[in-house]
Nucleic acid binder design. Structure first.
Lengths: 141, 141
DNA sequence: CTGCATCCCGTGCGATACTG
DNA sequence: CAGTATCGCACGGGATGCAG
């Protein structure tokens, strides 16, 4: 953890065939995870479920701006990837409980590493963005 | 780094106002970074530039399947966020060199953490996905 | 309560063609 | 070499309505 020395282990610094082949890109699980994390709701839901289990409408009420459609779709996606679990309790009004799977729980760690970076360097990004927009054109639209 | 004990530090486990307000979501730099990382090309370009500087067509040749349009747009995006730098050398055939900024370089670390997780747990995700698709319906298409 | 179906829009992304 | 312009498709994502 020295100062200017950025030691990057693992995959990122691993040798890479050039040109990076299409197969490699599509088959790579990194792309999968990145896409998941990149959508608008998955990470937020992951974080909420990381604290406790939620029911459907409870999640719906807990996330301002999400539609039922996207909540359903996102949960299905997380479930499909083995990150969240869906438990149906056969009560008279149906009750469905969502939890994080052990796998999903392990994802919180690397996610928090990235989130931490984002929070730390958010101002720098905002500044760079403002600077770029100002110098490039007067009215960014 | 114990076995089943997942200790999640920082942002992810920080207190969160419920319901999570829309402003919070849009203003949050985490969302920004996640979106960037979630697009198809940014991370790959970040990784390449992390090794050495590249020229435009050199990048174009190094990434199979990317269009000029998306290469330009992605590089502009990275540049706008202060993650990559663009240097024009006033030679007779114009030469443009792309590099990682110090900021961009620091992003490689948390990114590699996530990438590492993806590679480690990729099989589990694939298995869960196959299992889900099989049990849910015979023909997923 | 928990969801699926339908309609619609914005945009990410690729293909192609053209310019300094 | 290093881009820009235009087109078109696919998909994420919101609004609304219906159903078990």
């Amino acid at each position: 953890m020295s100062d200017t020395h950025t030691d990057v282990p693992s995959v990122i610094s691993a040798p890479l065939p050039i040109p990076v082949p299409l197969d490699e890109q599509l088959a790579c699980p990194v792309g999968d995870v990145l896409r998941r994390a990149g959508d608008r709701w998955s990470v937020l839901i992951l974080v909420l479920l990381g604290r406790r289990s939620y029911r459907f409408n409870e999640l719906h009420r807990s996330i301002e701006g999400i539609s039922q459609r996207m909540l359903t779709r996102t949960l299905r996606g997380l479930e499909r990837d083995g990150l969240a679990s869906r438990t149906v309790h056969p009560t008279v009004p149906p009750t469905v409980e969502y939890d994080l799977t052990p796998l999903g729980r392990t994802l919180l760690e690397p996610l928090s590493t990235l989130a931490d970076w984002a929070v730390r360097h958010g101002p720098e990004i905002a500044a760079a963005r403002a600077d770029h927009d100002t110098h490039d054109r007067a009215n960014p639209g």
